[in-house]
């Protein structure tokens, strides 16, 4: 009994760390732009297919696959940024969101046209397992957890210890004021987007390596898990993204175990809906989210 509970919680935390990884990039974009990028998952998916292309066609090594995944995700992310965010006037948060959905359809179709076989293999990264006592922990999950922690620390240092971080925070707080003091807001937004896509690429690589396979369906999965985790944690908050991802993982693990697998996603959405109703700011409610709610009122 208690062993099951602890094992489920452990599983939840480790699967949740992949959600956290996805949510960090998601929340970074939202935090800076106050807009939602639904194409986030599909861009990552495109990246992993770039990685798998090298692996299947040229039997490339781990590093090359990882680099290709990252590059693909960033390239797709930059495309999304230009079309859905840069080209649409600021403040039209909903137009950007719908546009990013349209580009999602495009990216997915491009991948299915180029890779008609649906499922492709992906090289594993850490194919081992630990068994402390009665428990079981997969190595790739440990790596994922460590990466999530490392990225959080690095991102924190970047945001609070560098000039770029200062500019980024300024733009996210008040873009007009940031522009007045001479910050190139367009460039900052672009860089933030590229950075978020790179983080997404890392997340995509680790998740694909853990699953050892990849399908076009991954885009939808990544966007939804990232979106739920981000909303649970509080949109725009990086610690929130971590906590939200872990919370989502734990909810899924327990509801899947105790209620049955068909209740897994249902419970996750029910919790998401409850959060939106009773605590729209998420676990780490920020004052800005209220403002963004007001900002998002017009199409």
């Amino acid at each position: 009994m208690i062993v099951d509970f602890v094992q489920n919680t452990l599983d939840g935390i480790f699967v949740g760390s992949s959600y956290s990884l996805l949510a960090i990039g998601f929340t970074l974009i939202f935090g800076v732009m106050r807009r939602l990028n639904l194409s986030y998952g599909p861009s990552i998916m495109l990246g992993t297919f770039a990685g798998t292309l090298l692996f299947v066609e040229f039997e490339a090594g781990l590093l090359a696959v990882a680099a290709a995944t990252l590059a693909g995700a960033v390239l797709a992310g930059v495309y999304v940024e230009r079309v859905c965010f840069w080209a649409i006037r600021r403040g039209a948060a909903l137009a950007s969101m719908v546009s990013s959905f349209a580009i999602w359809m495009q990216l997915e179709e491009i991948v299915t046209v180029v890779f008609p076989d649906r499922t492709y293999p992906f090289p594993p990264l850490a194919d081992f397992a630990l068994e402390p006592g009665p428990f079981f922990v997969r190595g790739d999950h440990l790596v994922m957890f460590a990466c999530a922690a490392a990225i959080t620390v690095l991102l924190h240092l970047l945001l609070y210890r560098t000039r770029f971080g200062l500019a980024l925070r300024a733009v996210s707080r008040n873009p007009a004021a940031a522009a007045f003091v001479g910050i190139n807001t367009g460039l900052v937004l672009f860089s933030a987007f590229a950075l978020a896509s790179a983080i997404g690429g890392v997340a995509g690589y680790l998740i694909a390596a853990a699953d050892q396979q990849i399908t076009p369906f991954f885009g939808l999965w990544a966007t939804f898990k990232g979106l739920i985790a981000m909303t649970l944690g509080g949109m725009g908050s990086i610690p929130g993204a971590i906590a939200g991802g872990l919370l989502l993982g734990i909810i899924e693990a327990h509801s899947g175990w105790y209620l049955g697998t068909e209740y897994r996603d249902l419970s996750a959405y029910a919790v998401l809906f409850a959060f939106l109703v009773f605590r729209p700011g998420g676990l780490f409610a920020q004052r800005q989210t209220l403002r963004s709610q007001l900002a998002a009122r017009r199409v």
Partner: peptide
Amino acid sequence: TLRMRGLFFAIGTLAFAEMVRLIFEI
């Protein structure tokens, strides 16, 4: 959903619809 605005309304209705679909699954 009355108190949800903009993006929050969009995500809230999304969560609701997915719940409905998953309920029909069972």
